[in-house]
Structure formats: structure tokens, C-alpha cells
């Protein structure tokens, strides 16, 4: 399996006044194409920072990071936006749907406003995703008319509509009840199978961790374990 994400001695240090805080310290990891990966650890362990670095939302202060074969540490903000729009989908903890757009329009947004795809292609893609996440009958509704689980389904569809190589989900189930959380993870797994998209998510919920096929454990910014579904563990 080819590596989609390669991190070498990846570090991120934040300055808070005179104090320097290591959010991620010398992390080394590789994530293969089509993987279903979770970064786990307690609050403040660096999970979100790792996802932000992979998602080109933030820049590392040390080390190297390649995503889909590109050295993303060299991208400026315009190139990073273009890279994200082409290669990465995002699912947020708070769903972050655009409140003035309907379900279908929210899903359509990246195709329309980021990739400028033609109308026919947009309709086809949006309908396919609506069907895949089971939201066809809700497509005309606005986000505030949906439940949390429905919102996250829409968010997953929006993340996948551009057919990205990678979907990053930061605590995607944190605002959902356990049953809904499992259903969302089930949906993500299903989409991963159907589209061969790599899913990387962060969580600190042990029940959700069990769904991951590859598990990276972080503690105080350090990657301490790397476990696979087959039971292998690397310290």
C-alpha cells in the first residue's frame, strides 16, 4: 500500500508569550492510501494539531510532511487552499454546515465555490452523495432543521463530494450520542470502502477508537504507540 501521508520528525511549537509549548514533537508516521486511521489521546495531547498539519491548515515548525506526495510545508496560503480544495475533505466536531444553505447546497459548496465544476456534474455528484449518506429526502432542509447525526451525515457527504484522497475528521462524534456516533463511523467506513478514501480522525472516546483500523496514540505531543487492527503494536 502506497503512503498517502508521510511525517518525519514532525514538530509544532506554539509561542504563548515567552513560553514555548510543544504541541507535536518529532512525530514519525506513515498513513497508507485507503486507511481508516485514528489519532487518540487525552485533551491537549496534540491530536488536533496533527490533523491541522496534515490538512495544511497549519505549518509545522520542524520536520517534514508529505501529503499525497507533496511537501506541504512549502505551500503558501493560496497554494494550501488550492491543495485542500483538491485533495482533502474536512469533517468538523460541530458539523460547521453553512446555515443559509440547504443540505444539497452545503454538499454542493466545494464543487461550486472551490472547484468551479459544471452544473451537470455537480447535480450528479450531490445526488450520489445524498443517496450514499441517506439524506435524499432531507436535501431541501436547512441545517437548523436537522438532528446532530443528520448534520454530520451532510458534513461527511460534503467532505467526500470532491472525491478527495483524504478526509480529516476532528472529533467527528464528540457532539453525538453513542449510537449516532457509531452510525457515523459506520458511514465513514462504508464510504471509505466505496471510494477508497483515506479517513483520518481524532478522538479520545475509547468506544470510538475500537472502530479504527490504525491507531496512533499521542501524549504531550509525542507519538507513543502505533497499533493496527491486526493487533500489531509499535512503541
Amino acid at each position: 500500500m502506497m503512503s498517502l501521508v508521510v511525517a518525519r520528525e514532525l514538530s509544532k511549537t506554539y509561542k504563548m508569550g515567552d513560553v514555548e509549548v510543544d504541541a507535536v514533537k518529532n512525530a514519525n508516521f506513515e498513513i497508507g492510501e485507503g486507511a481508516f486511521v485514528a489519532f487518540v489521546g487525552p485533551s491537549g495531547s496534540g491530536k488536533t494539531t496533527v490533523l491541522n498539519l496534515i490538512g495544511c491548515l497549519d505549518k509545522p515548525t520542524g520536520g517534514g510532511l508529505e501529503v499525497t506526495g507533496f511537501d506541504v510545508t512549502r505551500l503558501d496560503r493560496f497554494q494550501a487552499a488550492r491543495f485542500r480544495g483538491t485533495n482533502i475533505g474536512f469533517v468538523f466536531q460541530n458539523f460547521n454546515l453553512i446555515p443559509v444553505l440547504t443540505v444539497a447546497e452545503n454538499i454542493e459548496y466545494p464543487l461550486l465555490m472551490v472547484q468551479n465544476r459544471p452544473a451537470k456534474e455537480r447535480v450528479t455528484r450531490v445526488n450520489a452523495l445524498l443517496e450514499a449518506v441517506g439524506m435524499e429526502d432531507q436535501k431541501a432542509k436547512l441545517p437548523d432543521q436537522l438532528s446532530g447525526g443528520q448534520k454530520q451525515r451532510v458534513a461527511v457527504a460534503r467532505a467526500l463530494v470532491t472525491n478527495p484522497k483524504l478526509v480529516l475528521a476532528d472529533e467527528p462524534t464528540a457532539n453525538l450520542d453513542h449510537k449516532t456516533a457509531h452510525s457515523i463511523l459506520g458511514l465513514m467506513k462504508k464510504m471509505r470502502r466505496e471510494m477508497n478514501t483515506t479517513f483520518i480522525f481524532s478522538t479520545h472516546d475509547p468506544r470510538i477508537m475500537a472502530e479504527a483500523e490504525v491507531l496512533f496514540t499521542l501524549e504531550d505531543g509525542r507519538l507513543i504507540t502505533h497499533a493496527t487492527e491486526e493487533g500489531g503494536t509499535n512503541d
Binding site: G55, L57, R77, F78, A81, R82, F83, R84, G85, T86, I88, F90, F92, N96, I98, P99, Y109, P110, M113, V114, Q115, R158
Partner: peptide, 12 residues
């Protein structure tokens, strides 16, 4: 919301 659309790749 601006953060969300920017994260999705919307150009400035």
C-alpha cells in the same frame, strides 16, 4: 463559518 469555507479550500 469563514474558517470552514477557507478550510474547504475557498480562495481568499
Amino acid at each position: 463559518e469563514i474558517g470552514t469555507i477557507a478550510a474547504m479550500g475557498t480562495q481568499p
